[in-house]
Simulated assay, not measured.
Amino acid sequence: MKSRESGKVVCTNKKAYHDFTIEQVIEAGMVLNGPEIKSLRAGKANLKDGYAQIRKNELFLYNVHISPYTFATQEVPDPLRARKLLLHRREINKLIGKLKEQGYTLVPLKIYLNAQGRAKLALGLAKGKKHYDKRAALKQKESDRELQRIMRRG
């Protein structure tokens, strides 16, 4: 799917690209409270240990920390609460089919605000990397850097 991102990136999950092979990126909306969206606009979120799961044919986001907004007048929600993600039914059905295959998981890649100011989440359909895959990726990255240095020198 195309990412219609044109706004501000709130936070990214760099570790996801190291630990997983991302096969598909899905854009989903998030159900948030008023203080949470204010906190996101201030850039106070952490995706490090987050994951998404399907429960009762609905998609939920777990372990994503959105810091409480300091100037909130209403009751502050739990920063680690489960948040519902908004996708079309056919997209959820496709994900259910993919997640039944062994080794697939849904990992949050980044939270951003689109042009209309709505919070969106880029979810990655991911497969876990083995330890030797991570080492091979690091070697490839290092060789690419070395090649860039040589090209820059002339």
Results as ranks from 00 to 15, higher is better:
2 K>M: 12
2 K>R: 15
2 K>N: 14
4 R>V: 08
4 R>Q: 11
5 E>Y: 03
5 E>V: 06
9 V>R: 04
9 V>C: 10
9 V>S: 07
10 V>C: 08
12 T>I: 11
12 T>E: 15
13 N>C: 03
13 N>M: 05
13 N>I: 00
15 K>H: 11
16 A>R: 07
19 D>M: 13
19 D>Q: 12
21 T>N: 15
23 E>G: 15
24 Q>I: 09
25 V>Q: 13
26 I>A: 04
26 I>Q: 04
27 E>A: 12
27 E>H: 06
28 A>N: 00
28 A>C: 04
29 G>A: 03
30 M>L: 15
31 V>D: 14
31 V>K: 15
32 L>K: 02
32 L>C: 04
34 G>W: 06
36 E>I: 01
38 K>D: 13
38 K>P: 08
42 A>V: 02
43 G>Q: 02
44 K>G: 02
44 K>R: 09
44 K>V: 02
45 A>Q: 09
45 A>R: 10
48 K>I: 10
50 G>A: 10
53 Q>V: 07
54 I>N: 02
55 R>Y: 10
55 R>T: 10
56 K>Q: 14
57 N>Q: 13
58 E>Q: 14
59 L>H: 01
59 L>N: 00
60 F>D: 05
61 L>D: 00
62 Y>A: 05
63 N>V: 06
63 N>M: 12
63 N>E: 14
65 H>S: 07
65 H>M: 11
67 S>T: 13
68 P>V: 02
69 Y>L: 08
70 T>M: 08
72 A>F: 03
74 Q>S: 15
76 V>R: 15
77 P>N: 05
78 D>K: 08
78 D>L: 09
78 D>W: 04
78 D>F: 07
80 L>E: 05
81 R>S: 04
81 R>Q: 05
82 A>Q: 13
83 R>V: 08
85 L>A: 00
86 L>T: 06
87 L>M: 03
88 H>R: 11
90 R>L: 13
91 E>N: 13
91 E>T: 15
92 I>Y: 01
92 I>C: 02
92 I>H: 00
93 N>V: 13
93 N>L: 12
94 K>Y: 12
95 L>G: 01
95 L>W: 00
96 I>W: 03
97 G>R: 15
97 G>Y: 12
99 L>M: 03
102 Q>G: 12
103 G>M: 08
107 V>W: 02
108 P>R: 05
109 L>G: 04
114 N>G: 05
114 N>Y: 09
116 Q>N: 14
117 G>Y: 01
118 R>G: 01
118 R>N: 11
119 A>E: 00
119 A>N: 00
119 A>M: 01
119 A>H: 01
119 A>P: 07
120 K>W: 03
121 L>E: 02
121 L>Q: 01
124 G>Q: 08
125 L>W: 01
125 L>F: 05
127 K>N: 04
127 K>R: 13
128 G>Y: 07
131 H>F: 08
133 D>F: 04
133 D>G: 08
134 K>P: 06
134 K>I: 15
135 R>G: 05
138 L>H: 06
138 L>A: 14
138 L>M: 12
139 K>D: 09
140 Q>T: 09
141 K>E: 07
142 E>I: 14
142 E>M: 14
143 S>K: 13
144 D>R: 10
145 R>A: 09
145 R>M: 09
146 E>S: 08
146 E>L: 11
146 E>I: 07
147 L>G: 04
149 R>M: 11
151 M>Q: 12
151 M>K: 15
151 M>Y: 07
152 R>Y: 10
152 R>T: 07
153 R>A: 12
153 R>P: 01
